[in-house]
Structures are given as C-alpha cells and as structure tokens.
Write a protein that binds this DNA or RNA. Sequence first.
DNA 1: CGGGCCTCCTGAATGC
DNA 2: TGCATTCAGGAGGCCC
Length: 294
Amino acid sequence: MPELPEVESVRMGLDRWVAGRTVEAVDMLHPRSIRRHLSGSGDFAGRLAGCKITATARRGKYMWLTLDSGEALLAHLGMSGQLLVQPPECADEKHLRVRMRFDDGGSELRFVDQRTFGHLMVEPLVPDATGVEVPGAIRHIALDPLDPAFDGDVFAGVLRRRRTEIKRALLDQSLISGIGNIYADEALWRSRLHWARATGGLQRRRVADLLEHVRGVLGEALAEGGTSFDGLYVNVNGESGYFERGLKAYGRVGLPCERCQTPIRRDAFMNRSSFSCPKCQPRPRGARVSPASR
DNA sequence: CGGGCCTCCTGAATGC
DNA sequence: TGCATTCAGGAGGCCC
C-alpha cells in the first residue's frame, strides 16, 4: 500500500526516466483512472500531448510531473497503482489503465492499477498557503513530515485543538500528509501510544516524540525502498521494497511484541485494522473497547 | 464546519 | 469442489 516512502521511491525512479522527455500521445484504457479529471479523457490526453516534462515533485502520497505548459500531471497510486517504465514492445499489463508514449520512441510510462483507487489528472500549478506551487487539486493537502518546511510546533498546536483520536489525526491528510495505516501503526508503536488516545490530551513533548518516530519510520522505510506485502507496490522497474522486515506492529497480530513479548493485538478501526501492543500501548481510560477481529 | 462513517474496486483468502 | 463472503484501504462525499 503506497504511503510516503513508496511514493517517494517511485518518484525518484521516475525522475531519472521521464525528466526532459516530450510526450507524444497518451492512450486512455480505463475511464475510472481519470475520474477526477472532470473534463474527460480527450482533454486529459490533449493537455499532455506535446508537453515536455520538466521535473518531478511529491507531497504526502501525491506526486506530479511538471510540464512546460505550466500545468502538472498529478498522480495518486491509491491502493494498487503502479507507474512503470516499460519498453514499447513489452506486452500490456492486465490492469494497464493509461499509457504515455514519448516522441523519442523510447520507454513508455504506464499507469497500471488493479483496484482502480488511484487516479491521474492534469492540473494547473497554483501557489499554496506558503507560496509554493502545487497542483490545484491538492491545495488542501498538508505538508508532509519530511518536508523541510513542516513545522512540528504548529502541528502540535493543531493536534491539541482537535477533538479526535491520535490515529485518526495521523491519517488525516489535511493535518499531516503521507501517513497511511501501516506507518501510523508503526509510529504509534515506537511512541508507545494507543491509537485511541485523545489528541487534545497529548503533551507537546509527546507530540514532538511522536513526530520524531513518524520521521524515523518513514525515513527507514524509504531507505529500504518501501514496504511490499503482495507485489502490488513496486517501483518504476517493477521491484518491491524490503521494509516489511522492519515492521514491529502492522500485520503482526498474535506475534510477540519485540519490546515486551506480549502478543500484538488487532482492533477494528475505521472499517479496517489497527495493530498495537497491549502492554506497551495501553488503552486509554474511557476509550471504547473495539471488538478484536479474527 | 468538525467529526466520522460510507463508498468506490478487484482478487486473494477464507468459510460452509 | 465450488460458490459466497470477507478483507484490504485512500480520500472525497455526505450526513449529523
């Protein structure tokens, strides 16, 4: 499941292959992949044709290719999206949704997406609240914790004013971006915080500690090329990452906590799962007891 | 408008 | 064996 480290791994790989190349044509193979590009397939392909890709960028789980037209091709991988660099003679993937061909006749850029939660769109670049140019559609996405401009003190203040649970806040891309279910559980395990802890009751130093662990786990995962469970996350060359070996909580239900040997528990959370150590991450007083699933 | 639930989707895994 | 159900989850939409 692509979160910040996986998206950044893809972006870095893409940069090398597409920066400086000129788009010749785009083949649209599934309308759902551009459902957020409201003016449709023809407009999407037309805005890309003839454009030169000048650079790549990322914020949170979104990445984009800047174009010499002043617009950007924005991509979100969703659950199963892949951006692959493939030679033209390579057979179409089963779930190939969009193909971009270049005027040099070299490798194509292919958007492959089994579950179609990912999407692409062409958007004008506009200044965000701090003056940085981002695709218009993601103006509401917060800075991610690896962005040098991310301000931990501001984040702590925002958190403490919120009336919600800490894991919900970590997953809220308008507060802090790039974190999904896996790295939220890992950062909370490292911080010894239960997912249901109220954000309003967290001391500033606990928020600072949590943020340090968020940055730590994202950075370590990035260094390993990301996390792959099922082969659905791969970099532009189709290679999986290795960070699943570094996971301490996510997916480890029943296995011993590496700090205290207590079996990791699994709670139902937001129609999905949350993994934590019952001893290191005690349930806060007054938190509802979620039915353990499976 | 803040908070939180619902929905979209496919295929692997599980259940009976 | 085979059909049906469950599960995974990002984020926009929508309801209260």
